[in-house]
Design a protein around this nucleic acid. Structure first.
Lengths: 137, 137
DNA sequence: CCTTACTATTACGTAAACGTCAACTATGAC
DNA sequence: GTCATAGTTGACGTTTACGTAATAGTAAGG
């Protein structure tokens, strides 16, 4: 190990660190989400790539598409020069939040409905002497 | 209109009633989810088909796949003869409920995280005199 | 030198749930 | 007869985020 090994890492190390497959990292590169440097054919991922990957994974959790994420990362990269761009990012995230809240509400209502159906089903089954357990919520 | 027109309806009427496209209904038929009768090439959807379609749409809300739904519908059709089958349906629904609850929790936590990020972003933007509004939750 | 472990590129496959399009057919209106 | 309207089948396209070979190059260890 030479000085500052932790500055760059191989594809395998990245995979272990972030629980992704090599295919995924190559795919992200092809989609211009990551820009590993090349050392004789091999990819070397920098601190910057790791930071970006973290954001990518977060973004996925939030339900952003990879294309959305790419654009957001570009905005970050262009940097804090243009307020419009920061505000734009903020706005996009806000919209996503709204969607997520709606999804959560719809999901909650679907859960209620399904629970109701299950209780009804349980009655039927009980009345026939069939025994089952309810979910432990 | 002859006696009991509301017994059967055309594909168009189905589409209007349930807000689906003709393609969708034909697709469901091809997947053996619906069994409209044929009157010289045309499909005629019966009360049974409408009942099934309602269940299909409900099932989709609950996140069941069409294949899951098909099997569940078959179980319902076979009817209340075999307790094992009823119990099986019940179990499947219970499992789905668990998954939905987990999804809701993950979604809730993602919402919390995103809100946090937004608050952080708001601070940055505020500190630069850029004005925006927070979501009304 | 040989094996083993890693990595690379290219390209086709996958999943779900339809959309889209082409080419017919049937029906009623005029 | 013929135009318009609706319906039909069949086949291929779409989307997203990778998976899965197949093939080949390279570097380290023994």
């Amino acid at each position: 190990m030479n000085e500052m090994t932790n500055e760059i890492c191989t594809i395998k190390e990245m995979c272990d660190l972030y629980k992704v497959t090599p295919r995924t990292l190559r795919f992200y590169e092809s989609k211009e989400l990551l820009f590993p440097i090349r050392e004789a054919q091999r990819r070397l991922f920098t601190r910057r790539d790791r930071a970006r990957l973290k954001l990518i994974l977060q973004g996925k959790r939030f339900g952003f598409s990879l294309e959305d994420i790419r654009q957001l990362l570009n905005l970050y990269d262009i940097g804090d020069q243009q307020k419009t761009q920061l505000a734009k990012t903020y706005e996009l995230a806000t919209q996503r939040l709204q969607v997520m809240i709606e999804q959560k509400n719809e999901l909650a209502s679907a859960i209620r409905d399904l629970k109701e159906m299950l209780q009804w089903g349980k009655k039927v089954l009980d009345s026939r002497g069939i025994n089952i357990g309810m979910p432990k919520n």
